[in-house]
Each structure stands twice: as structure tokens, then as C-alpha cells.
């Protein structure tokens, strides 16, 4: 279970404090899949960071009683000078996992071959995405945080991702952010619309989407 209770997040900016999330409460149970829609800058990624525990809310609490992943397929932690293998090794060490086993999986999934021994800075966008996704799959979590996983990569990569996430891990909880309404509709059972710091929850996709579209076109 993940419980967000009256969560506020305020960022100080040069123009004074900016409220990103105001008084947000919701919960995600084991196996439940919550899709989050919202315009650019609505606070979706901030919410994911708060849930992941990388950042703390300004006020309110977030309780995690199941293990929660880092934002999936997140490649920002790659150090350009390190090789693909180095990055696998780093994550394996942090999460106390068997490195040799992980290497096999990453090689198999990414199909990067010899490139895994090259610095990550020599990778293309698509190669990075594959590596990032594979590394995210090394560690098993009860809940996965997915922030726009389908933005890069080819069809084959998307298929492989879908197999890993929605078939092999169909029993896990997920929080999914995407600008692709179809993706959210197909994979989620609960929907949240973020707008101007506010969050509304829906169980019916069409209703949620209608609300989202309304926000999208109103100033």
C-alpha cells in the first residue's frame, strides 16, 4: 500500500513560492494500477519523485508499506564515462543483487552486445533507453513508477517492455504517467487528473479523459 496523505509541495522560485501540489491524498493498493494524466508542468513528475522517496513533501506524509521502484527507465543517473556494465554493477551493489545474473539479463534484453563495454556517452538515445529499462527490471519491486516509458525506442523495444511490465509483472502495483491516453487506458484501472496542483480521481477512463481534455483547452 502507498498512502499519500494531504501532501503539499512548494518550490521556492525567484518569483516567490510556487505551489506544485496542494493537498493531495490518494492510495495505491497492491496490484492496483493508477494512471496519471495532466498537462505539461502539472506536477506529474514531482508527484512520482515524492512517491519514490527521492524528494520529501513540503507538508503531509507519504507512507510506503510495499517496496517502490525508482522512476522506471530513468537514464539520468548514467555517468557518461561509465560503461553499460559499470552501471549494472553500480545498481547491483546498491540493491545487494548478484551481478553476474543481472549481466545476463541485461545483455539479453538490451541486445547491445559489445557496446555494453563502451562508455554510455557513445550510446544513441534508443540504446540508452534500452539500457535504462533493462537496469530498472533487474530489481523486483511491489510497485513500479513509470514516467513516460514509451517516448523513445522502436516498436520491438516497446513490445519487450510491455512483456516485462504487463505480462511478467502483471500482479504488481504501478503508477503510470503518460501523454498517450491509449497507454493509460489499456493498462490502468484507476485514473488521476492533475491540474493546477489539484488532483481528481476517477474509476472511469472516459470521464477522466473528458476532464483532462477540458483542462487541456481551457486557459
Amino acid at each position: 500500500m502507498i498512502i499519500a496523505d494531504h501532501v503539499h509541495k512548494i518550490y521556492p522560485t525567484r518569483q516567490g513560492n510556487r505551489v506544485i501540489l496542494s493537498d493531495i491524498s490518494f492510495s495505491v493498493a497492491r496490484g492496483e494500477k493508477l494512471g496519471i494524466l495532466g498537462r505539461n508542468g502539472a506536477g506529474k513528475s514531482t508527484l512520482i519523485r515524492l512517491i519514490s522517496g527521492a524528494e520529501r513533501p513540503t507538508s503531509g506524509t507519504i507512507t510506503r508499506t510495499m517496496s517502490v521502484s525508482w522512476p522506471l527507465a530513468f537514464g539520468g543517473a548514467f555517468q557518461g564515462a561509465l560503461t553499460g556494465f559499470d552501471n549494472v554493477r553500480f545498481i547491483s551493489r546498491i540493491y545487494n543483487q548478484d551481478y553476474a545474473q543481472n549481466i545476463d539479463f541485461v545483455q539479453d534484453f538490451t541486445e547491445l552486445g559489445l557496446y555494453l563495454r563502451e562508455p554510455v556517452k557513445s550510446y544513441s538515445q534508443g540504446m540508452r533507453a534500452r539500457l535504462a529499462f533493462a537496469i530498472s527490471m533487474i530489481i523486483e519491486f511491489d510497485c513500479y513508477l513509470i514516467d513516460e516509458v514509451s517516448a523513445v525506442g522502436d516498436a520491438r523495444f516497446h513490445e519487450k517492455c510491455a512483456v516485462e511490465l504487463f505480462h511478467k509483472r502483471a500482479d504488481r502495483a504501478m503508477l503510470i504517467i503518460s501523454h498517450d491516453p491509449e497507454y493509460i487506458k489499456n493498462h490502468c484501472s484507476k485514473f488521476a487528473i492533475l491540474n493546477k496542483g489539484d488532483m481528481k480521481l476517477y474509476t472511469d477512463f472516459d470521464q477522466a479523459y473528458g476532464h483532462h481534455m477540458h483542462n487541456m483547452h481551457s486557459a
Partner: peptide
């Protein structure tokens, strides 16, 4: 900074 996405770091 990016490593702080891993809760334990």
C-alpha cells in the same frame, strides 16, 4: 543528484 532517485543514496 540523479543518483538520489535511489532512495537509499
Amino acid at each position: 543528484l540523479a543518483l538520489m532517485y535511489h532512495r537509499n543514496v
